[in-house]
Design a protein around this nucleic acid. Structure first.
Lengths: 127, 127, 127, 127
DNA sequence: GTGGTCTAGACCACC
DNA sequence: GTGGTCTAGACCACA
């Protein structure tokens, strides 16, 4: 895992876990890697992972059993989707639309960029 | 002016100035409010405004005449537009498109949200 | 059995057993379920149940006959009652009274809540 | 400040702050001691105080200004009161009433204990 | 000066 | 083994 600057590592980790659950890699009731395992695999301090997991537990995405581990909570996927959608629609999209107006970018142009993005994604998948 | 958490205040201020110029509120050669005036009006430490103006000067959007004040630079509007567009296309849009895929949101749905945004904007303007 | 977070599971189990004895579900000399049986029924590691039983044995509530099982000790019910009362009066009530003052809650209001609690209990019993 | 065992220090600190606000020692908009100041005064590591403040910020009791400090949030006192009352009525009181029934303790007896508590408090105040 | 984050390392209770 | 907490110390961005 590569960390971008500009966002804290623990948030990048919680996003990463959250997206795994969104994609269905881990489903309700699955035990996810322990704090220590994740710490080793992403090469950060266990404390940092603890913080990432705590965020997800607060959001109702993870659940933990003392001395056992962390699990995808009941309704965890829905919680993750709801959270991501809410952040997207309430924070990101308004900013995007506002910028479009400022730049005088039309919806058609946005669609064009979207299609370009999709094709680029496709080609990367073939690497 | 309201400050969102999560982004530094000086960047929020420089964005605010930059958008004023993009909208044409201030045009090439206009003197913009002094650091002190802005500091008072947005209720912030003058150091913070200084930093915001410095960013804009670096980008070629503002120009400083010592002892006189800050002015919209020659080509300032174009510089602001270019900067905003670059940030938008390189940073924000890829993130947006990625999230759309993750949420399974179609381009049609995005257009729908865009239209809703536009109508909301319209109605707010009538307040 | 549902486990609340915030208190260790073994203590929740020992409370649960203790209350069974207080209510008279199990009386002096009764053999209570084996560690394994309880472990299965409450879906917990046998080690955890062992610890819970050990606590109760320490308090003189249970008695162990090696190879046979655990029994409600002579005077077990009284021991359980004394323990619970002590914990209640020394730990819980002072905290409760303190919070009442902090919230400005009167004794009358407390009585009101008590009556509501009792009626709710009644109605649940009819389910 | 003395810390009891059984509850984590950071929660004891957040309770302490919360009660200060409930009592009106600090009111809306007041700046509370910085993380470092509190860390010194209660003799714990700044990280621990950070965690306590973060809890209160999550609850809407505190609010922070980057680089300036923590403040009692708008509606902070109400948030603190609501939180405490909710925890009290939903968690603590049901447990109390349940124990009363188990011990066969009457409301009259509880009142008696309450009066004793109040008089003890009074006499302590005269020390 | 402020808060925010991260690391390293320790100890604990618990399962 | 698991997670939870705490410390010490560091570095950073920010006001």
């Amino acid at each position: 895992m590569q960390f971008a600057s500009g966002q804290s590592i623990y948030l990048q980790i919680s996003d990463y876990i959250s997206e795994k659950i969104l994609r269905g890699d881990w489903v309700e009731g699955d035990r996810i890697p322990s704090i220590r395992e994740t710490a080793v695999s992403v090469e950060v301090n266990p404390n940092t992972v603890t913080r990432a997991y705590a965020v997800l537990q607060d959001e109702g995405i993870l659940q933990n059993q003392r001395g056992v581990g962390y699990f995808v909570a009941a309704g965890g996927r829905e919680a993750a989707a709801a959270l991501k959608r809410r952040e997207f629609e309430e924070d990101e999209l308004p900013r995007v639309f506002r910028t479009m107006r400022l730049l005088g970018m039309s919806l058609a142009e946005l669609e064009h960029l979207y299609e370009r993005y999709v094709t680029e994604e496709e080609s990367e998948r073939h690497d």
